[in-house]
Design a protein around this nucleic acid. Structure first.
Lengths: 334, 334
DNA sequence: TTGTAGGCGTTATCAC
DNA sequence: GTGATAACGCCTACAA
């Protein structure tokens, strides 16, 4: 079971080592006859290339990059933490991970970041804008593999998307909201920005289910909290003063503000939020939040890294590969 | 950025290659003075070993094994599928994964399987019995790394557990059951076997939450369906005939039987089950099941493989490493 | 206690 | 078109 090597293949095919290499990596300049001989020998021996040896010989280093928003939300912190946690093992495997942080919603800054990249593959979490899509196309044509991360750019040239299905997430939130509420008060949605595809899709999914299955529950117009705690707090309190809220679906960041608002509200609405962070974890424990929908940052970063490596190696990426499962946390499983 | 090599370290420390190797892999027989010199050079150059080169030189092949139950439950099928899906990439990385299937609940057979193992590390999903724990100890002392998989053996010598927290899973199921039911009828629990730790822990968690927070809901004695569809169907129908059921928590396999029973019941109870398979997926879609709790097989196998490799490499395994997140599926996100 | 000389499996550079 | 031959970075005899 000591796997066959190129030497074995060369010997059996009765050709030189270089020829075997030319066939295996189809570099051309080999006669059809010889190609056939080599392929036969490969089939006969069950040869499988030793990636470690190959990478050693070509001195390959995988230069990967993450472009993600700067800012102090708990979610970004988890992301960074997850990447750091893997770094030690990665570096031994010759994969260098570089992180570039950009201001959220600052398209020009994100474009500049993408332009300044020097790597083999990049996972980007950026705004959806024409300039960005152009930049993705440029990267691709420069031979850089690009995948979108957490927030997709479906119309772009990206080769994969790693993240959750945000419509499904919203639908799930809607389903739970409807079941938990069973009939009471109006429901408030607080997004970060409805221009952001991920937030928009979550809202859409949520709204769909509420209309399809819980039409009796009034749905207030969605608010935009800009992922900012103070803004979120103010918006929620204002809404609660106008009328007693039955439920709140917090689509984006700014959960600290939501917690502050809830503490000041006479009656506690059913509250469903996104992203498990220290803030949301504590709020779950304290009974302020009912459910936290969470994309597993460790899984997301690990998947992104694996897909980037596979892309660089020219392996097939199954369509499902980037799908991150959605986790749900209640006070019972934190 | 072309990382420092042993040659660089040797040159700077003014010692031979072999000495550097001895220090790096602390094989002893090096004077304290020399050790210090080498370590200084390592620090200065920021040397990090190239694992690929190291493995190439020692011709290391990772021989991994999974010991899992035979049987045609959808869960086992998913597990096998997940392992197969990764095999191609793994083999290029010199990791050979072997699968051994044993009859469920057949302790003697499982012990025999463990005894026949020839590998560097193994992930085992087996019954909890003294003989098995002895066998784990024997494997460990024979230098084989052992981790438990899906079902833990907490009292054994295993070095890690990869799987979900079953108590938390049961608690979560209980929480949802209570909230969905809001007040109606008695709740039936159907386990596979209460002697199996995973089922037992789920039941415990479920029961805890029901008693703590939804004490008004009567809880029927737990039934054992032996993971067998026909048995499950019969038990559920009998219970339903005795009294109208408000909810059903299906802790183990045999979901096909549960579906059959539900189709023959006048009134549909709130139904929460485990493991997302074609059967449970269809039942969700058809509105027969309300929730499916699921451990992501792909994540579980990938994590197990990663931890086995880390164990073999002697890397630190963080306590949290084997924790698989619990996914929840409703009809809205399948 | 220390150093030298292969060799691991692949790729790249030359000649032929 | 094809085939030797020398790297790549590390480990491991064996020699000193």
């Amino acid at each position: 079971m000591g796997n066959a090597t190129v030497h074995d293949v060369a010997r059996i095919a009765q050709v030189g080592l270089a020829t075997v290499d030319r066939v295996l990596n189809n570099r051309g300049n080999v006669s059809a006859k010889t190609v056939a001989k080599v392929q036969a020998a490969v089939a006969q021996t069950g040869y499988v290339r030793n990636l470690a040896a190959a990478n050693l010989a070509r001195q390959r280093v995988y230069r990967l990059c993450f472009v993600i928003p700067a800012g102090e939300t708990g979610f970004i912190a988890s992301l960074l933490h997850a990447i750091e946690a893997q770094r030690a093992a990665l570096i031994e495997d010759q994969v260098l991970v570089h992180i570039v942080q950009t201001r959220a919603f600052d398209v020009a800054g994100q474009v500049a970041a993408l332009r300044g990249l020097d790597c083999d593959a990049v996972a980007i979490m950026v705004s959806e804008a024409p300039d960005i899509q152009d930049e993705v196309a440029r990267l691709r044509s420069a031979g850089v593999h690009v995948l979108t991360f957490v927030a997709d750019l479906p119309r772009s040239d990206r080769e994969a998307y790693v993240g959750i299905d945000n419509v499904a997430a919203g639908r799930l939130a809607g389903d739970f909201m409807g079941r938990f509420l069973h009939g009471a008060g109006p429901v408030l949605m607080v997004a970060g920005s409805l221009a952001a595809r991920d937030h928009n899709e979550r809202m859409m999914g949520f709204r769909q289910v509420m209309q399809e299955r819980f039409a009796s529950l009034p749905l207030l117009p969605a608010m935009e909290g800009a992922d900012d705690a103070a803004t979120v707090e103010r918006l929620v309190l204002e809404a609660a003063q106008a009328q007693a809220l039955g439920g709140i679906y917090a689509i984006g960041a700014g959960n600290r503000g939501l917690v502050a608002a809830l503490r000041n509200m006479a009656q506690r609405p059913v509250t469903i939020v996104h992203e498990l962070t220290p803030t949301s974890r504590n709020a779950l424990r304290d009974g302020l939040f009912d459910l936290v929908l969470d994309q597993d940052c460790t899984a997301a970063t690990a998947t992104a890294i694996k897909i980037m490596r596979d892309l660089i190696e020219g392996r097939e990426i199954p369509a499902e590969a980037g799908k991150i499962r959605l986790n749900i946390h209640s006070r019972e499983n934190i």
